[in-house]
Write a protein that binds this DNA or RNA. Structure first.
Length: 206
DNA sequence: GAGTAGATCCTCT
DNA sequence: GAGGATCTACTCA
């Protein structure tokens, strides 16, 4: 298993990076407790040009400041007062691209995730949806926003897993209806048939 | 099984 | 003072 380097995130094509993140492994290791999962669903947020992004039209606030920094940093923020959403910042300084991690397939530390989420047994809801991903991995917007993905506590790695093109599906993003026509952009990518993918857009029919 | 309302709190206007 | 890149439970069919 090999940790991705910062140059991976600092490329200019956020959509391309989003696609490549599918099948990679997201790892957190807070206080020596490791939890990890394979990324099965992501969404790209294309900076100032993207109305669905927090940086739409060049908006810049304390909250989204980290998006304007170097790629390879986490951007975590609180939504609806309850859910912590975990993003990866990409591109170089002053270009606020980000990729939202929407779903994982748990690999390590499943019992820890169960404890964090208050669940009794492992099922597909454990890491399905961005709110649950952060919860299961113990990510909170106050402590972990702006943390570098080259740190020992939080990083993304790759193993031998290869995703074939036909198992990758693009679709419009979820929950961004307010963004007008940008809401229809096919910036969401997920692994076909994976039970941890959120939403009802599964294409598996009997 | 599908649709809808409620939870809950930080950030920006 | 309003609203948000969501999730869950509960109602109704």
């Amino acid at each position: 298993m090999k940790k991705l380097t910062l140059s991976f995130y600092q490329r200019t094509d956020v959509v391309q990076i989003a696609k490549e993140l599918l099948g990679k492994i997201l790892v957190t290791k807070w206080e020596g407790i490791e939890t990890s999962g394979r990324i099965v669903e992501v969404e790209a947020y294309n900076g100032v040009a993207d109305k669905a992004s927090h940086a739409a039209g060049g908006r810049r606030t304390n909250r989204n400041e980290v998006m304007y920094g170097e790629g390879g940093v986490s951007y975590v923020y609180l939504c609806y007062g309850i859910h912590h959403l975990f993003n990866v910042v990409t591109n170089r300084q002053e270009t606020p691209h980000a990729i939202l991690i929407r779903a994982l397939e748990p690999i390590k530390g499943i019992d820890v995730m169960l404890e964090r989420t208050g669940k009794k047994k492992s099922d597909t809801t454990l890491t399905k949806g961005p709110g649950n991903v952060s919860k299961a991995l113990g990510i909170s917007f106050k402590e972990h926003s702006g943390l570098s993905l080259s740190s020992k506590e939080l990083f993304i790695a790759e193993d031998d897993f290869k995703l074939s093109k036909k198992d990758m599906v693009a679709s419009p993003r979820i929950g961004v209806d307010y963004a007008g026509e940008d809401a229809r952009l096919p910036y969401r990518f997920f692994i076909k048939g994976n039970p941890f993918v959120s939403g009802n857009t599964q294409v598996n029919k009997s």
